[in-house]
Design a protein around this nucleic acid. Structure first.
Lengths: 241, 241
DNA sequence: TAGTGGTCTAGACCACCCG
DNA sequence: GGGTGGTCTAGACCACTAA
């Protein structure tokens, strides 16, 4: 429903490529042809193609044209900045969310450091397990600044918090820094997840910022080793210097 | 040494931000001011600023300006498509490479599947350990199509293979798909790495393509759990549909 | 209201690929 | 030589922010 011409073009092609209507290796119409087809200017077409290229949908070759890439798009899980609900919808898996806790608390010290905020500053703490095929394999611990999010309920937490933030509260989520590492399991992990004899979990730390750059959310996502996967598309940057 | 105006501007600012000359929160000159300063057009300035924004250096705010972000740039390790040599230079750590094997072999079956090539097709196999602070913590197993890389030596493998490919052979590396997961340690891991009682390693699979989209390299990077970290910067995409 | 970034246009010239 | 994408220009109008 975006009215920008360039995102129209972008969406047209992401949809066709994801649906398989456009198969890997196929050549896209040239920029001049697209310019005419969408009755727009070439720079606008190029903006859309650049986005497609950045996101691994196509590859552009000077003198030849733009070609659809084969990136096994099915398995793009944790990549980017996407909520669990959006993910499970895209994957179409049998996924369920269990809400353990939704509470307004004074910020504990170790979280205050992550959120760069005063200790005792009120924050929402949300603890949820993600169940895939009847096993609790991900433990999500979210902390939101209460100054940004006045209210939060168990119902919202069992659906999509992001949907609520962007829809109801009209918050503009802009960017995040994500850190992936592997750490020892905690007593809490053992209690709230279906772990076997695991000694470690994958920890994804997420620092999420709004449009005005305020850091408003810190999330710790703890994944069972065997269910963790991360896929990324990267382009080689020309040498700096 | 890039003569494009937009990458001039991009490099000017990445350097200043990485060096700390420009501190987080500082406002950049407006696009109009930059246009004048670099005697160029506004769209060219915007191209550079867009790149800076994509890579987490700045954040643009309509009506306000562009601002330097604080992304603890020190710890950007495995992100993007960067060779180990480039990484260790940037980190300035005491890093060393041990070459275990450089050999031209007929492609084994399980690798042929990864490289999407006929079994027995000749490939270069390179096995190296990466030592950080006197511990072998990463095992890199690379497979290159011999049809693309006619020759390869132990000397090259102990330096930077990418430098050789891009410098000597003038290969144009374009993009890669990267998969991160956690797997059981193998006998080979135990033999070639300094593992303790570890039962698992982080496995980063890399499928690297050239400008003409040929898949020419498959790399399996096996990291000791406690030394693995991955940091990513992500921007929220506006809703598709 | 003046200044900012977001989108778009209609051109231009270039480097590259291929028949 | 004709077609492709890569870079750049000099404008335009819009949406948003701040004083």
């Amino acid at each position: 429903m975006n009215k920008n011409i360039f995102s129209q073009i972008y969406n047209d092609y992401t949809q066709q490529i994801e649906a398989g209507t456009l198969k890997p290796g196929v050549k896209l119409p040239s920029e001049n042809e697209l310019t005419e087809h969408y009755s727009t200017s070439r720079e606008t077409v190029r903006k859309a193609l650049h986005l497609l290229s950045q996101n691994g949908y196509i590859h552009k070759m000077r003198g030849k044209g733009s070609f659809v890439l084969d990136m096994n798009r099915m398995e793009f899980p944790v990549s980017g900045l996407v909520s669990f609900k959006e993910l499970s919808q895209r994957l179409g898996r049998t996924a369920r969310t269990l809400v353990y806790e939704v509470s307004l608390i004074p910020c504990p010290q170790h979280i205050a450091r992550q959120l760069q905020v005063q200790e005792k500053e009120p924050v929402w703490k949300v603890v949820r397990a993600r169940e895939i095929e009847d096993e609790k394999v991900i433990l999500d611990k979210d902390y939101f600044l209460a100054s940004v999010i006045p209210s939060l309920t168990q119902d919202i937490a069992s659906e999509s918090i992001y949907e609520y933030l962007e829809g109801e509260l009209a918050l503009k989520i802009a960017y995040a820094k994500k850190e992936i590492s592997v750490e020892q399991v905690t007593a809490e992990d053992k209690l709230l997840l279906d772990l076997k004899r695991d000694t470690h979990v994958v920890v994804v730390r997420n620092y999420v910022h709004l449009e005005d750059t305020t850091l408003f959310e810190y999330t710790e996502s703890r994944h069972r080793l065997d269910k963790f996967q991360f896929v990324e598309f990267a382009r080689r940057m020309p040498n700096e210097e």
